[in-house]
Amino acid sequence: MKKFIDALKNYAEGDLLPLEAERIIAEESDLTIAEMEDAALCIGILPARYARNRNTISIAEQRILFQSSVAVVGCGGLGGYIIEELARIGVGHITVIDPDSFEEHNLNRQINSDMDTLGRIKVTVVSERVLKINPAVTILPLAEPFTIKNGARQFADIQVVADALDSIPRRLELAEVCEKCGIPMVHGSVGGWYGQVATQFPGENTLQKIYSRYSGERGIEKDLGNLSFVVPLIASIEVSEIVKILLGVGSTLRGKMLSLNLLDMEFTEISF
């Protein structure tokens, strides 16, 4: 191990570890990229892919993110961007859950849908993309639905769950499972020009309040659809909430909901 630590220090450029150095060290050792990067972060050496994070996220915080586990439920519009941003910020373990394949009507907003991926299983495509972006991430693709029955198994060892579903009853079930498992959940949903984000910790029942009078499977998106620029905005706010929860920094939307109206450019915060 000392030899390996010496190699990390030897090949690092200052306190940055470039990809080329990782390749050389990988050839000289039998460590995985994830093991190598965790060891580097542990001794204060930052994988160079995170160089632009460093003045906002410290090396110690980068290691916390790298050791964190997040589940993203739904790999379509919101989920695609959430997974992309989690991988790029450096969350080390991402579980992605979705039983569906890409279809033509996904092309207007889902970042992983394109001419080459139509018909392919979503979790397979997003996993391939994550490993192209950040091979240090451990990604667990589950090509199955989230259900009340599956949830506890799917969320074993998960610290935060991201809601990227497209069904109101499934979201309420997700909130219920997160409650039972004691896991914080970041909710996001979209429809037309509008979106909303909320963060629910166990015992808060925020989702039940948001959808207290709902009936039926879907909301206003049934008539209004979902737009390309609304989806990544809501996904990004969800990721900012996840990162703050993992690092224990800043102020979150815990016990609140942020409602965004991009048509009238009104952002409204509600407290529950």
Binding site: A164, L165, D166, R218, I220, S259
Partner: peptide, 10 residues
């Protein structure tokens, strides 16, 4: 009194 519709899309 503030009233909001349900958003369910993802």
């Amino acid at each position: 009194l503030a009233l909001f519709p349900p958003l369910g899309g993802g």
